Computed example of a mutant assay.
Amino acid sequence: MGACAEVTDTNTSSSLESNTTGITAFSMPGWQLALWATAYLALVLVAVIGNATVIWIILAHQRMRTVTNYFIVNLALADLFMATFNVAFNFVYASHNIWYFGRAFCHFLNLFPIMSIFVSIYSMTAIAADRYMAIVHPFQPRLSGIGTKAVIAGIWLVALALAFPQCFYSAITVDRGATKCLVDWPEDSGGKKLLLYHLVLIVLIYLLPLVVMFVAYSVIGFTLWRRGVPGHQAHGANLRHLQAKKFVKTMVLVVVTFAICWLPYHLYFILGHFQKDIYYCKFIQQVYLAIFWLAMSSTMYNPIIYCCLNHRFRSGFRLAFRCCPWVTPIEEDKMELTHTPSISMRVNRCHTKEILFMVGDVAPSEAVNGQAGGPPDGVSIEL
């Protein structure tokens, strides 16, 4: 799942594949390279700044430290690492088809992207499972702070184990004078092991979690839209019911965006296994750069979605960028992230707890406390 290392041009002499000149059959005109570099640079900047801001908003404000938001931090961290350690290096490799970064980084670049993708999509799956329990089964025990950290650590460990084979078999080779970073599976002349590994990856880091999230959010949506809060009931319960619906819409948009961005990338590698001739076509470089940009762009959309659809994150972004002349924070922004509900509000939550259970919005622990072991911060159905 690494860079497009197999792209070569059989009609080009070995002199053009010289590693010393940096010129290959796939070297682009300067203007074309500049356009692609600008597109990738914009992607990296938006992804790094956006995800770093999301992490700051949650970790720097006690009210935002809920179970759901810890999984969002994990998702943002994976996207941040992907944008920082994978995008630029893979772009340089794909734009020249020469590996400049040494043996150690070759192993790393074949390890870390798979880890990041796994962590991203299973963080989304954990959020879906957490919301499923909170809304569909509000009386069941919920994850504690320690349990949440254990799940996050488990996600990273499984991701490491899944990515390790590709890292282990990474190798530096020289093809017609050009250095390449490849995955060299032993006794795999027909590429069957590599194909099987990629198919297993696609199932585990794409198809399976998407199916799980589709089922979970379908049940959640049916529960929320089927059960309404009677008009004469407490206003707070009705507000939280609406917030739960908005949260589901936000996370569904996050999941759908991820699925769309990564689908062409997975299809590209499956097609390449059955039609290896496509790697000898000059146009495949442009196709790969476009597909790879789309896949990597999944790292930058989530902060934009949070900012557009969630008022607390919108307040956090205004506070984070208040030094910019075009950003004007309002007084309510700081209160959104730091304000602790008054005693009267807590009593009101306890009074309306039975109504919240009726509509299936929150678990007992969330009606009063927004996080395990933390101060009251509102209902954690909201990001």
Rank of each mutant, 00 (worst) to 15 (best):
Asp175Ser: 14
Asp130Glu: 13
Ala153Asn: 09
Thr173His: 09
Phe118Ala: 06
Tyr122Ile: 03
Gly147Met: 11
Ile172Phe: 07
Gly177Tyr: 08
Ala159Glu: 01
Arg142Glu: 13
Ala129Asp: 12
Lys149Ile: 12
Ala159Asp: 00
Arg131Cys: 04
Pro138Trp: 02
Ala159Val: 01
Lys149Cys: 10
Ala129Gly: 12
Ala134Trp: 03
Ala150Tyr: 10
Asp184Val: 11
Ser120Asp: 07
Ser170Asp: 02
Trp185Arg: 08
Ser170His: 02
Asp175Leu: 13
Val183Ala: 04
Ala134Asp: 11
Trp156Cys: 03
Ile172Asn: 06
Lys149His: 11
Ala159Gln: 00
Met133Ser: 14
Val151Tyr: 06
Gly177Leu: 08
Leu182Ala: 12
Phe139Ile: 13
Val119Cys: 00
Asp184Gly: 08
Pro141Thr: 13
Leu182Phe: 14
Asp130Thr: 12
Leu162Phe: 02
Asp184Pro: 09
Ala178Cys: 10
Trp185Ala: 07
Met133Ala: 15
Arg176Glu: 15
Met124Leu: 10
Ile155His: 01
Ala126Leu: 06
Ala153Ser: 13
Pro141Ile: 12
Ala161Thr: 07
Leu162Val: 02
Ile155Ser: 03
Leu162Gln: 01
Gly147Lys: 11
Trp156Leu: 03
Trp156Gln: 03
Trp185Tyr: 13
Asp130Gly: 09
Pro165Gly: 03
Phe168Pro: 07
Phe118Val: 04
Leu162Ser: 01
Ser123Phe: 01
Gln166Arg: 10
Cys181Gln: 05
Met133Leu: 15
Gln140Thr: 14
Ser144His: 10
Val136Cys: 10
Phe139Asp: 15
Ile127Pro: 02
Gln166Phe: 08
Cys167Gly: 06
Lys149Leu: 13
Leu160Phe: 07
Ser170Lys: 04
Leu182Ile: 15
Ile152Pro: 00
Asp184Lys: 12
Ala128Asp: 04
Lys180Pro: 09
Arg176Val: 09
Met133Tyr: 11
Phe168Lys: 11
Val174Leu: 14
Ile121Thr: 02
Met124Ile: 06
Leu143Asn: 13
Gln166Asn: 09
Leu143Thr: 12
Lys149Gly: 10
Ile146Thr: 14
Gly147Ile: 11
Ala171Gly: 09
Cys167Thr: 08
Asp175Arg: 14
Lys180Ser: 08
Arg131Tyr: 04
Tyr169Gln: 02
Ser144Asp: 13
Gly154Trp: 01
Ile127Gln: 03
Ala134Met: 11
Ser120Trp: 03
Pro165Lys: 02
Ile135Asp: 07
Trp185His: 08
Ala163Gly: 01
Ala163His: 02
Leu160Thr: 05
Trp156Met: 03
Ala129Asn: 12
Phe118Met: 04
Pro165Tyr: 00
Val151Ala: 06
Gly177Cys: 09
Ile172Leu: 12
Val183Lys: 01
Gln140Trp: 13
Val119Gly: 00
Thr179Arg: 12
Leu157Ala: 05
Tyr122Ala: 04
Leu162Arg: 02
Ile135Met: 15
Ala159Met: 00
His137Asp: 12
His137Trp: 10
Tyr122Arg: 05
